[in-house]
Amino acid sequence: MLSSSEIRRYSRQLMLPQIEEEGHENIAKSHVVIIGLGGLGSLAARFLVGAGVGNVTLVDGDIVNISNLQRQVTYNEMHLGELKAKALLNELRKVNPSVNIKGKCIYADRDNLPCIIQSAHCVLDCTDTLAVRKLINQACFFAHKPLFIAAASGCTWQAVNLLPNQSNAGCYACLTNTIEVREDCVTQGVLGPVVGMAACHQATQALLFLAKGNNADIKWGQYIHCDAAQSTIRAFALTRSIHCKVCQ
């Protein structure tokens, strides 16, 4: 049963049939792990904390740099040189003190990932290198954790929701194991709002899942490709590859 102050705080999302009171209570009991606190993770975290996700773990070993401020809207000049996990944690506590937020000032790797995601109801991959993304995919697959992936570069953003062992749906490795990805924000640049769009999509999908669990209408294995410059969105089925070394 929600208190009157909770009803006031969350009134706009409680109205939604995808959330309602039961869905919000599920959100409030959830634990989300956000890996990578740049343009994707810092904004997705802001929305999840604002929406009242009960427990949020922020993971990143990086510090706030002046070149981040163009798109990483949760940080400002006061945070320059500060560890992102610490800076973001302090900002988000001001947004919603009822959320249990933990910061881990470390980079995710093969060794620490199983521990980091162990108690998560879902994981957000907000990192920026293919190598780490593959490790997160693998860790989530073997730990049976729902994984919400987003990425951006230039004026393009892409996203996919993955649920391990979901019928014919593939995993991130099905797509990337034999592909070299050249594009990233450092070499290709990125427009601030484009990475923000990706983060908003990622946070939306996570909230809908947390609210209704397996009853949520999540398009698992649907790969979204958005060209913001052309105002086009395309969606593709990411099916299981027989060549995949992770999910086969």
Binding site: G36, T127, L130, A152, D184, V195, R234
Partner: peptide, 9 residues
């Protein structure tokens, strides 16, 4: 559909 994968965040 031909598209380029991105990995930035």
């Amino acid at each position: 559909d031909v598209f380029t994968l991105v990995a930035g965040g």
